[in-house]
Nucleic acid binder design. Sequence first.
DNA 1: ACCCCTCGAGTTCG
DNA 2: CTCGAGGGGT
Length: 711
Amino acid sequence: MEKSPATPQARAASLRAAIEDANHRYFVLDNPAIPDAEYDALVRELQALEAAHPGLRTPDSPTQRVGAGVLPGFETVAHELPMLSLNNAFSDEDVAEFTGRISKELGEPEPEFSVEPKLDGLAISLRYERGVFVRGATRGDGATGEDVSQNLRTIRAIPLRLRGEAPAVLEVRGEVYMPLAGFQAYNARMRETGGKVLANPRNGAAGSLRQLDPALAAARPLAFYAYGLGAVEGWSLPDRHSRVLQALRDFGFPVSPEVSVARGLDGLLAYYRGIGALRDKLPYDIDGVVYKLDRHDQQKAMGFVSRAPRWAIAHKFPAQEQLTTVEAIEVQVGRTGALTPVARLAPVQVAGVTVTNATLHNADQIARLDVRVGDTVIVRRAGDVIPEVVRVVEDRRPRDARGEPLHPPYEFPSACPACGSHTEAVRKVLRQTKAGIEYAGGAAIVCTGGLFCPAQRKQALVHFASRKAMDIEGLGERFIEALVDFDYVRTVADLYRLTLEDFLEMKRRADERDDAVPETVKAGKVATKWAENLVEAIAASKATTLERLLFALGIRDVGESTARTLARWFGALDPIMAADQAALVEVPDVGPVVAERIAGFFAEAHNREVIADLRAAGVQWPEGAPQQSAEGPLAGQTVVLTGALSAMTREEAGERLQALGAKVAGSVSKKTAFVVAGEAAGSKLEKARALGVEVWDEARLLEFLNAHPTV
DNA sequence: ACCCCTCGAGTTCG
DNA sequence: CTCGAGGGGT
């Protein structure tokens, strides 16, 4: 431990130096030198010292970051040099226009640009006089902004004193932002303590700077990146923007590590795509990239148009998060009777696609979000695919004259919206204790109507007809809906009784009810052809396999894989129907729960009747001897297929591997014997490499299949 | 008693 | 694709 210097002055100076050095290492060099606890101890010691000797307090002391009293409001500040806005480019063409104009006017085919990510935060200007921070202001309207110095002082990434030889005046422009980790931690804390959560990091940053109480701002995790200059006196500017950024680093400012220099249109677009690919991995939100002509003389030559430079442009990414409104909350009924709430949204573009629906998962999720009809919500495409409602913007909730919300909290229906049967919460038992029963996870709400419920009947039929089940081509959801609504079918067996005339009549009624269908399609040759195809497809589906049939029946917890195992193990349907729970648990991958489901399904007279009807209608499948252990060169081995194959589909390859005794699994683990990786293989291949699992390419697979022909 | 693995089920859009 | 839970191994 360092020995305390003799005088308080000297100790204060050394504490300040140590604290600022820690800040610099943490925020600028990204290389923390001391643990947080130690940092806090240094700050507390300095605070105590300054409290005891008020004369020691200086405006650039790190203790001033924590802020003086509450501000009455914000002073406005005129920017000595205006803070400009940037023109936006939303497409490659926009960028090409930008570079084309520059090349033409400068007579240089491929000028150099300083390029950087565009952070989604708040632009501010910091003023330093003789190396000391004196004032910081928001951009405002560009000409004047608000003096938010007190709040800026609380941001540790902003130096209060410049390093090295300081100019008489230096104005630094940059972005105050909230790192994602800090944003999440802050919101988690707020949720726990019942505080107000921030809508997104950008609002977090903007809101924090406008806090009148600097102590509140200090509690928000904010950071800063510098990207440019304002007024400068007593310093000879470097001749390139990229060198200005380097100089700013040397003065002690954090500059984004992603800044770079690119040449010509191709260079800019390559940078854009590179940052785009990195976007999800960056620790902060960005909404695009910024290109600036690197040479100052060239910037000068291009000049300005109104308030935007002609030498710079912001190239925006398609937004990943958007605001939209909830037009309705509807409840869907699934095959198993599970009620799933879905938010119908006003159409909005998110990450390149139009989103109109988003699942709300279950009652718990609705309660957690407190989504109500009419609410403005933030939607995001999670994992780049499925839209989800992230948060409600409560400030925009519609309210009546007294300020009460127009809509009460959403209440889950107590009756099934499809059949009116009562609904019940199915909670999973975690364990039974003396105190009572503990339940795991959220409660799923299910319709108790069973197959009496038209929604469940429809979904059962959709499942039955689906590609991996009976594979009835052309029988999609829309017509299944009509078949059920008009009472043409009640059970899956009824499908096989329908005639050409039935389909034509049904289609006519469906088309009449749905006026989106053009007149020409409603009748005549087109309709007849459609019906003929459907009858043919249904007839063709009669020749099937035992595993497809078992899967198609829709027994709970019996999916593709379990259906296949059952079919192999028993070889024929009758022994499966006759098997009791004890016999079923002998089947690999079938435990007491699934065994009970299977036995229960076949015990139902109704289900046995449907099977008899299917058989009577001519549905048939080859049966064979029970095969209680796999045979073949790959017996006992688990393989995984990933990526696209060229000679066959993944499914065909899977079938052939199974014929050789292999078990084809969907995910890679250390038990996987080998992974077959086709073109554009993704995470499964990565995982295989990470686990040291053998990887085959398509050529090796084909070689193996050729060497082991199957019948 | 716990943990890992796999399977089942539900979901959106072009 | 992701989440949760059943199955089975340690």
